[in-house]
């Protein structure tokens, strides 16, 4: 009894089982998303043929993967770096919001340009590392942002906004 529930508990953390479940989920979402697309049309192969066949195939692979891994015990998936994910990807999203403005959850962000979005992304992302040193990070953020403005905007001529609120572009 005890060993049975222990085994079931191990299965809940088994990387290989989750890999199979993930495949089934992705395939199922795609099958749902493509369900309104025609398989074949008068002109020939329809828009839905390839996505539905491939999505179905992924579901089948997922089922096989789960079946195989239920029989043998695989390694634990290990801890998830939720803190790092949240901070790094959050920094990326903040960059996107600040660069030319946008609205999220009722808050409207004006177009702030690279002058703000650059240091913002660097500083926020930097805190994902547990050894981050705030002073150093701020200085580094200013320097690297200045370099980016020089390289992307002025050397390469890419029309990325610099500081629309200050200098008009």
């Amino acid at each position: 009894m005890a060993s049975g529930s222990q085994r079931a508990g191990a299965k809940l953390r088994d990387r290989e089982v989750w890999a199979g479940i993930a495949l089934i989920a992705v395939g199922a979402i795609a099958l749902f998303g493509a369900s309104d697309l025609p398989f074949m049309t008068r002109q020939g192969v329809g828009a839905g043929l390839l996505p539905r066949v491939v999505a179905g195939f992924i579901v089948v692979l997922g089922v096989i993967q789960v079946a195989i891994s239920l029989r043998a015990s695989g390694p634990d998936a290990g801890g998830w770096a939720w803190r790092e994910i949240l901070i790094v990807l959050g920094a990326v999203v903040l960059f996107g919001l600040a660069i030319r403005g946008g609205a999220v959850a009722g808050v409207t962000v004006p177009p702030l340009g690279l002058v703000v979005a650059g240091p913002l992304a660097v500083i926020v992302a930097g805190f994902a590392d547990r050894g981050a040193r705030p002073g150093e990070l701020v200085v580094f953020a200013a320097i690297i942002s200045a370099v980016c403005i020089g390289v992307f905007r002025f050397a390469l001529g890419i029309p990325v906004p610099v500081a629309p609120w200050l200098i008009g572009y």
Partner: peptide, 17 residues
């Protein structure tokens, strides 16, 4: 700790462009 925030920034600008 400094290299990765710089990579993040370079990627963001590149993707934006």
């Amino acid at each position: 700790r400094l290299l990765f925030p710089a990579i993040v920034l370079f990627c963001c600008i590149g993707i934006y462009s």
